[in-house]
Design a protein around this nucleic acid. Structure first.
Length: 202
DNA sequence: AACACGATCTACT
DNA sequence: GTAGATCGTGTTG
C-alpha cells in the first residue's frame, strides 16, 4: 500500500491554510534504522516580515535562508543548545514563511522511536517540536530537503480531524495576539493542552 | 572578539 | 512552580 507524498502545490498557498490542512496528515521519516511516522496534531504558522516571532522578521540570514526559498522544503534549526525544530516552507519563493511541526501521534516505527527517547511514554514520543525531532532523528542535516524526496515527507491518509482549534503560539514573546497555533483538540499527544480559546472548522 | 538569548525539555522543589 | 543544560546565531564593539 504505497501512499504518495503531498505535492508542491500543497505548500504553495497561504500559510494559515497550509497549517490548518497539515493537521491529520502523516509525517514520514525514512532513516538508516527504518521508517517512522506520525499523524500531525499540532502546528504553528510563522509568516514573513510583519510577524515579529518569525525568524525572517529581520530579513534574510544564513540560518533562515531556506524560508525565502521555494515552498515544500524543510527548514530545520537548532535551538537552546540541544534541540532541533522542523518546519515546512510555504508560499511563493521570495516570501519567507513556514509551518512549525509541534506534535504528532506515532503511527509507525514506535519501537525505533522508543530507542531514541527511552524515557518517554509512547504517546509522548512526538509530543513537542524538540521531542519530535529527537524521536524521528531529524537534525541540521535535514535542513533544506525537498519534501517530495525519500527521507522526509508528508502523506495524506484522509484521516481528517473532526475539529481544529486555534490558540496563541507557544514559547514566543512577541506576536502572542495572533492565534496561529493549530491543534486537533481531541488528541492526547499535544505538547500542551488546549486552553479555552477560539475555534475554526466544523 | 565578545556577548546575550532562543519557535525547548528535563529534573527537581 | 523554577532552574539548569548547552551552543549556534545575530548583533555589537
Amino acid at each position: 500500500m504505497q501512499k504518495t507524498c503531498l505535492p508542491r502545490s500543497f505548500y504553495a498557498r497561504d500559510t494559515l491554510d497550509v497549517a490548518r490542512d497539515l493537521i491529520g496528515k502523516v509525517l514520514v521519516r525514512v532513516g538508516p534504522e527504518g521508517r517512522v511516522a506520525g499523524r500531525v496534531v499540532e502546528v504553528e504558522a510563522y509568516i514573513g516580515q510583519d510577524d515579529p516571532a518569525c525568524h525572517a522578521a529581520r530579513g534574510r540570514t544564513a540560518r533562515n535562508a531556506v524560508m525565502f526559498g521555494p515552498p515544500g522544503f524543510s527548514y530545520v534549526y537548532f535551538i537552546y543548545g540541544m534541540y532541533f525544530c522542523l518546519n515546512v516552507v510555504t508560499e511563493r519563493e521570495g516570501f519567507a514563511a513556514a509551518v512549525l511541526i509541534r506534535a504528532a501521534e506515532p503511527t509507525e516505527g514506535e519501537s525505533i522511536m522508543r530507542r531514541r527517547s527511552p524515557k518517554l511514554q509512547p504517546a509522548r514520543l512526538l509530543s513537542g517540536p524538540g521531542r519530535l525531532c529527537r524521536s524521528m532523528a531529524i537534525t541540521r542535516e535535514h535542513n533544506g530537503l525537498d519534501l517530495r524526496g525519500d527521507a522526509l515527507y508528508f502523506e495524506d491518509h484522509s484521516a481528517e480531524p473532526s475539529r481544529v482549534v486555534q490558540t496563541p503560539r507557544i514559547g514566543i514573546r512577541q506576536g502572542r495576539r495572533r492565534l496561529w497555533r493549530f491543534c486537533d483538540p481531541d488528541s492526547k499527544a499535544l505538547s500542551r493542552p488546549v486552553s479555552t480559546i477560539s475555534k475554526t472548522g466544523e
